[in-house]
Structures are given as C-alpha cells and as structure tokens.
Design a protein around this nucleic acid. Structure first.
Length: 661
RNA sequence: GGCGGCGUAGCUCAGUUGGCGAGAGCAUUCGGUUCAUACCCGAAGAGUCAGCGGUUCAAAUCCGUUCGCCGCUACCA
C-alpha cells in the first residue's frame, strides 16, 4: 500500500489576552478550507492551530483579574475552542504553549542552540537613565545624555541570552532568493529582503528576567525564554520534535504552508527560518502572508455600522454563508473591505439566487414531473455534453487554484459551473418537454443531468462550506452513499443512480431583504476597532504595543490633573522638520514666553495653516529632543481610531498663556 | 527619507512572456421565460486602461517622469 502524500498547514498560534475577532477567524477559516480540500483530494493532512500563552501582558492581565496566568488563559482558550467549533474548524491538533510537552521541547531547543554556540549569554549593555527607566544605545544618546530628559545616563549591564541571527543571514538571503515560492505574496519578500536582511540583522534577545510567566531556561535560574523560541517552535513541537515519539515530525515536516497575517510575516520569514537553520532542519515550503479584512467606514457619504463579531454573523446568516463570504470576497493575498452590504449582496446573489435556487428548481421539477424520483439518463445532446464537459473540467481548475491558495478564484470557478447549470435549464426548457409524452426520455435526461451537476457542485464546495453539501445531498436523496461525496467521484458524470427519491426541503439560503438586514446589523452592533485588532496574533508585540499597554486608562484624582500645566499657546511660526515625514517644528507664544515644540502632525496639518491657531500646550512636559530639535512640551490633539488627528483649540479667543483648568 | 506596490466600466476587480475591435461579477435599463427563493436566461451600456513624454510596425501591458493612494522601514507622541 502506497503512503498518501502529506500536507501540513498551520495557522499562527493566537495570543489569548482577549477575545478573538473576525481577523483571526479569517486566517483560520482559510486554513480550514485548505485542510479540508487537501483531505478531500486524498492527502494525509496535518492542520495545526493553537495559542501562544506566555508573556508579560498575560501575566499582568491575569493579575488584574485576580487569577493566575494559567487560570486566565484557560478561560480564554476555552472560548477560542468554542469559536472554532462554531466555525467548524477541523484542526487536527490544538497546541498550547503551556502544554508540558511543548515546554520541555522548547527547553531542549534552547539548550541545544546554546550548546552549539548559537545562543550566548551576554550583557544587554546600554546607557540607562534611571528617572526614565529606559535603556539607550550609544547612537540614541543626544550629546551623551538621555534623549528623553537630557539628564545623565549610566552604563548598565543586564544579563540576557542572545541568538546569533547574524550568523545565518547570508544563508537565508540566498535561500529566499533561490526559493521564489517561500515568501508569498511576492511584495512581502522584497520588504523582508530590503528592510531587514540586506541591511544586516542584529542578534536577537531571546530571554527575559523581567517577568516570570514563561518557560524557564533550564540552566539559568531567573531567565525565561522569550516569545520567539517559545512561540515559533510550536510548529515542530506539536509534531513531537526532539522526543522519542517524533514520528509526526518525520512524517509531516517541513510544513507545506504557514498561513499568517501580513503583520507577522517578518517573524516567520526571518527568525523562524534561522532557528530552523540553526537546528539543522528544513525550512517550511511557504509562508503565506494574507491581507486584512478592513472594515468599511470613513467614507463621507454614510458611515455604516461595522460587524466584526463572527459569532453574530454566524447566528444570523449561518456558518456557510459567512465562510463563503470570507473566502470569496477578498483575493487572499490582498486587503479587502468587509462591509455588511457586500456580505448581504453576496449571500443573495451567489448563494440564494444562483446556488439555492438551482437546487430548489431542480428538486421541484423532479417532484412535479417524475413524482420525486430521479429519472434515468437517455441519449445525450449537444447542450448536455457542453454542461458535462464543464462539470468534469471544473475540479481540475479548482485544484490548480487551491494549490496557490486562491480561494476566491476557486470559488469563482465553481460558480461558473453553477451559472452554466442554471443556463442549461433555460436552454432545455423542461416545462416545455413536460408537455409532450414522447419527450419524456429527454425530460428525464435533463433532470438527471441537473441532479448530477448539483451533486458535483456539492462536492466541490464542501471544503469551503461544510454544511451546505449535506443539505444538498439530502434533498437529492443520496445522503446514504458516501461514494458520491468523494473527489474521485467527480471524474465521472453519471454517478447518481436513477430511481432515487428526492426530498424537497426549505430553501438552503433564503433571500435577504437588503435594506432590512443593513438596518439590523447597524443597530445592534457597535463599531469595533479594525486593523489594529488583527495585530496581536502571536505574541509578536511590537514596542509600540508595549507602550500602549503601559498606558491603560485608570481613574485619577483632581490632584493628578493639577499636575498638568496646560496653557493656551498661539502658533507664531511653523516649519517642517527636515528628513521627517511627521514632524513639524512650531514656535509658540505662551504669554510672555516663546517656546519651541516639535509635534508629529505633519501628515495632518500643513505648516502654513497652523500659524495663528490657538492650541493647547502641555507646558510642564519634560523637554525632549526630537530629530535634533528641542521640543518644550506637547500640543493636544484628538485622534480617532484610524489615527486621524484634530488639534484641540479654544472656543473663544483668549490670551495666550491662559491656563486650562 | 529609503524600499516596494497600486491607480482599468457606477461599484469590486481580471488582464500571461507587448498584437485581431479592452474583459468578468454586482448594480442599472430593456427583452425572454415561468420549473424556481420577485428567481433564472439574453441583450445593451463606450471606460482619455491616473497625467505627460518616450521605445516599437504595434502598449493597459516596456522605459522615464508627474500626481494620487497604500504597505514595510527609519525618524517619531
């Protein structure tokens, strides 16, 4: 017996600091469709997803919630698994970085890399500014002092482990250049090469002593393994790498594709491959960075409410409609706009009108003309052959497209067949045939071909829409026969046995009242944040995010407020800071005094339009040097979720220097 | 500032290595049909293929340039 070909596909492991949203669902649904497709086409599939559960952020949130980190993530993970169940995600394994097996292997990997000299202990040496609690590199210092507060800094050393990324960079560059399919889509490849690899990599700090919630470094107490080695290695620890039971690793590795959001392509195409090189293992065949679902909004005409909770959509429209929309609407590599209107329109035109109605009319005609029994095929005519030819050709096309992860195109191809089948009804006009007795065989042939086309369609859509095929098959009366559901069965047209009794059911996709739906969706769903939400997939917290974490809003007292010295300041001059896209240098009149403030608003305001405006200045902010320019305070601006800025000004003319109370 | 990408019918987008009169889906209008979920089928609609300038017998497709949008990155509240 020949071994089946294997196919290993992964999603990122998600960071369970909060509930998941449509972006995570998007990645996971896509991976699921692919996994199902490969199973259908007779691959031995390994589909992995999971959660990345360590790190400071979770440690902190758990503490705030008064539970242990493990208790906290257990709760969230249960919710995630529930969500995947709702979306019918057919993963083969769900890995958690808190699994003991995972932790043990990560420790082995860390040790191995250490023993072979790829991880080394060093000092994180930097200039430390005690008041700011910040490290600075030599270059960042301004005139030998803290660039933030301009005070003295001291040279401090802190122990950390580092991974020798630099050692492998040339090999990786070569690899990427020689393997065109490795980073997809292609534009991502250039970004990695040009922005990171060619300029040169720095060694990566892979341990922390500042928090405890992580996998301990076995040979050095106090150090925990930081996200990179912990999280990325899930793709092989899940297969039993470095254990006695590594059969899965030997069978499935290298992965065929790591599906990731475009925001984490970097980690998967630089750090991860280098880890694998250091371990002497093969690299994954492909890292595919898909785009984001951008929520509609911002357009001036109407700002519509946005729906992003997949559970709500699933409840309202059914899982298959949601999955269909996600996979059909947006070309997988690029960003796409998610709008309620597009969703409802897709459901109506593609699912209700084309597919659902095709099933309805077919079954209704078999009912009416043949008392619900599928008739036998008689002689074929030209139209029949045309339809059959397309039906037989479509699976091959779908397979080709799926191999390139072109879900949307694959679905379009299937819908081409659905359209052709609808057209076939018009061409053959069964209601006319039904009028004469001698046309009976012909009528039977037509209806048979319709039923068989629907069977083929139901197999074709099954990876994308796990529920609908069952319903189609049931209405066709063939649910008992599994041989009619296989990919292989698509190579022949004429599999459905004649004489089967159909059973007409409800429309599988009821038509929606667009206007009503939009109103409904808009009213009960708050607008949620968009792209930003899709970022925190994998513990790949950026510095920016870490800063955000520190900025949690909590209650303050009036005394706290009093610490701020807010003043009205009039702009007397403004100019763009050279070599900077965002910075404007403002001269402000604050009472008697003149101040210079550098502000990151150049993308929202031109220098000219600012002059003469009265703004609100935080006057007692520590002075900072930005891009070589002294900034004495900052001006206030409102910022919406898209990052659009609007400067704060005064309602009436008032003397500059007036204080805000 | 550096690197990369994009700008094609009202909307969303296809357009291989340059070549018969520029396409699909949705929406719109008209016609057909009645088996069906007011559905399906057909037809129509000219969009300076962002602008300009080149290369070529021939460019949406190659080169240069301008404008607009976006991504990554640097600098940065």
């Amino acid at each position: 017996m020949k071994d089946k070909k294997t196919f290993y596909i992964t999603t990122p492991i998600y960071y369970p600091s909060d509930k998941l949203h449509i972006g995570h669902s998007y990645t996971t649904v896509a991976a699921d469709a692919m996994a199902r497709f490969k199973r259908l086409t007779d691959y031995d599939v390994m589909f992995l997803t999971g959660t990345d559960e360590h790190g400071q952020k979770i440690e902190r949130i758990a503490k705030e919630n008064g539970v242990t980190p493990k208790e906290y993530v257990d709760r969230i993970v249960a919710g995630i698994k529930e969500l995947w169940k709702t979306l019918d995600i057919s993963y083969d394994h769900f890995i958690r970085t808190t699994d003991p097996e995972h932790q043990e292997i990560v420790q082995k990997i860390f040790k191995k890399l250490y023993d072979q000299g790829d991880i080394y202990k060093s000092e994180y040496e930097g200039w430390y500014c005690t008041p700011c609690e910040s490290f600075w590199t030599e270059i960042q210092l301004s005139e030998g002092k803290c660039p933030d507060c301009h005070r003295e800094v001291e040279l401090v050393k802190e122990e950390s482990y580092f991974f020798k990324m630099s050692k492998y960079q040339d090999r990786l560059i070569k690899y990427i250049e020689e393997h065109d399919e490795f980073i997809q889509p292609n534009s991502r490849k250039n970004e990695m090469l040009n922005n990171f690899l060619r300029p040169g990599l720095e060694d990566l700090c892979v341990s922390r002593t500042s928090f405890k919630w992580g996998i301990p470094v076995t040979f050095d107490e106090g150090h925990v393994i930081y996200v990179w080695i912990d999280a990325l290695s899930n793709y092989i620890t899940a297969l039993g790498y470095l254990t006695d039971d590594d059969g899965k690793f030997r069978k499935y590795w290298p992965a065929d594709v790591h599906l990731v959001g475009k925001e984490i392509v970097r980690f998967h195409t630089i750090i991860w491959p280098i880890m694998l090189m250091a371990l002497g293992e093969e690299l994954p065949r492909q890292v595919f960075g898909h785009g984001w679902l951008i929520l509609e909004g911002g357009k001036m005409s109407k700002s519509k409410g946005n729906v992003v909770d997949p559970v709500i959509l699933e409840k309202r429209y059914g899982l298959d409609a949601l999955r269909y929309f996600l996979l059909r609407e947006v070309p997988f590599g690029s960003d796409g706009v998610f709008s309620n209107e597009a969703l409802v329109n897709r459901i109506n035109s593609d699912l209700a009108n084309d597919l659902g109605n095709l099933l309805s009319r077919t079954v209704a005609m078999i009912d009416r003309y043949f008392d619900g029994v599928i008739p036998a095929q008689a002689e074929l005519e030209e139209v029949d052959r045309d339809l059959i030819q397309l039906a037989l050709k479509t699976p091959r096309k779908v397979e080709e497209l799926m191999d390139e992860l072109l879900f949307s195109n694959a679905l379009a191809e299937i819908w081409r067949l659905i359209s052709r089948t609808n057209k076939y009804i018009d061409e053959t006009m069964p209601w006319v045939l039904a009028k004469s007795e001698e046309q009976r065989p012909r009528l039977g042939t037509v209806l048979y071909n319709l039923a068989e086309s629907l069977r083929i369609i139901s197999v074709l859509i099954s990876p994308f829409m796990p529920g609908t095929p069952k319903e189609i098959i049931k209405q066709l009366g063939i649910e008992g026969d599994d041989t009619l559901k296989t990919w292989k069965s698509l190579s022949d047209f004429g599999k459905i046995p004649a004489g089967i009794r159909v059973s007409k059911g409800e429309p599988i996709f009821p038509r929606l009242d667009v206007k009503k739906e939009l109103e409904e969706l808009e009213k009960n769903l708050p607008t949620q944040a968009k792209a930003e939400d899709q970022k925190d997939d994998k513990g790949q917290k950026t510095d920016e995010e870490k800063k955000e974490e520190a900025e949690e809003v909590s209650e303050i007292t009036i005394d706290d407020f009093a610490k701020l010295d807010l003043r009205v300041a009039r702009v007397i001059a403004a100019e763009k800071v050279e070599k900077s896209d965002r910075l404007l240098k403002l001269q402000l009149q604050v009472g008697e005094e003149t101040r210079q403030v550098v502000s990151g608003i150049a993308e929202h305001y031109s220098a000219e339009e600012l002059v003469g405006k009265d703004l609100i200045l935080v006057a007692n902010l520590k002075p900072v040097k930005l891009r070589g320019n002294l900034s004495q305070g900052m001006i206030l601006a409102a910022s919406d979720k898209d990052g659009k800025l609007s400067l704060v000004t005064t309602d009436r003319q008032i003397e500059s220097g007036s204080s805000i109370t």
